[in-house]
Amino acid sequence: MTTNAKTGITVAVISAAFSALALAFLTDGGGPHLTRPPIALVDTNFLDKATTRQSYADLVRTGADLSDFDCYVCHDKKHPPPLRLDTNQNIIVATEHSDIVMGHGRHGRNNNCFNCHNETNLTLLQPRDGRELTFADSTQLCGSCHGPTYRDWLAGAHGRISGYWDRGSSPFAAEEIRDLSAVVDRLRKQSDPVSAFVWQKLSIPEQAVLTNYQPSASTTNQAQEVVLRALNKIIGEPSIYEPERFKKIPLAIATTSLLQLSPTGDNLIYLNRLLLEDAYPAELARSTRKDCVNCHNPHSPPFPSRKPAPGPHPLREIGGTTGPQTGQE
C-alpha cells in the first residue's frame, strides 16, 4: 500500500469518527442526560429577623397582655415570698415557677432571687446601687454586674442591631410603615399628643388625603407618601421631645440614653426617629439595638442551640438533605 493510500484511509477514518461524534452531539445521542434533583427552597424560618425572645419593653410597646408579669395576682403584697432552701443551701424553685432554672452565671453563686428582684415590691428590679428599675429597664440591671458587656452594648458593639449604620440618613422607608391604616387612623383622630403634633405639621391638602383615606383603595399610595413625607420632615427638625408630649409613651432605653446626651446633628435625627418609633411601636418598624433579654434568658443561662440552615450546594445535592428543613427559632 502506498503512503498516499495510507494517508487517505487514515483521513477517512478520522473524518468518519468526527462526523459520528458531531452527529451524536447534534442529536443528543448516548441516552438520556443525568438529571440533578432540584434544590428545595430554603425554609423562610431561616430568614426571620425576629429576636429569639420578646422583652418586657417590647410587650409594653406593642400593647400585649402583661398579666403574666403581675406578681401580686398570686403573691401577697404585705408578705415577701419565703425562700425555701435544700440541704446544700440552694433555693427550691416553686412548682408554679417550673420554667425557672436556677444557675445564673457559670459559677453558680448568683442563686438568690432577690439579688435582682426587689423583695418588698416584686414588680421592680434592684441593681446593687440601690436604684429601683421596672422590668422594661432590665438592661440597666444586667449592666450593673456585666459592666464591660454593657459598655460594649452602649457603643453598639454587643448584641443585635438593625436599621441604619448611618444615623444621619435614617429616614423611614415605605416598608418600615408596618401598619399604614393604624398610623392614618391615629393621625386623623389626633388620639394622642404626638399624633396631634404630626397632624399639625401636615398641609391642608395632605390632611384631606388622610381624611379621605380608605384601606385597600387607590388612595393607599398617596396616603403612604403623605405619611412618609411628614415623618421624614419631622425627624430632620429640632428635637421633638417635650415631657408633656411623651408623658404617656414608654421610651426605649436607647431613646432615653440618647436623650440624656442632648444630641446634635446626625444623632439628633436619630433621636427624633427613635422617639417616633416609641410613639408608634406597632405601626413603625424599630431600628435600634435590642435589649439583653431579647436574646438571653436570665432564668435559663445557656444560649439556645439551634438547627443550622442548609450548607453549600454540593452538600444539598449529595448529602440527602435536599428536603425542606424546619428552622428552630
Binding site: 430568614l47 426571620d48 429569639t52 442591631i161 438593625s162 436599621g163 449604620w165 435614617s170
Partner: peptide, 23 residues
C-alpha cells in the same frame, strides 16, 4: 442597603449579634 445608610442583610439576621458594620 449600605449606600442608603442601612445595615447589610447578613448583619440584621444574625441571631448572635456577631456581625458589626459601619464607617
Amino acid at each position: 442597603r449600605a449606600r442608603a445608610g442601612r445595615y447589610p442583610a447578613c448583619l440584621e439576621v444574625c441571631p448572635a449579634g456577631a456581625r458589626k458594620f459601619g464607617n
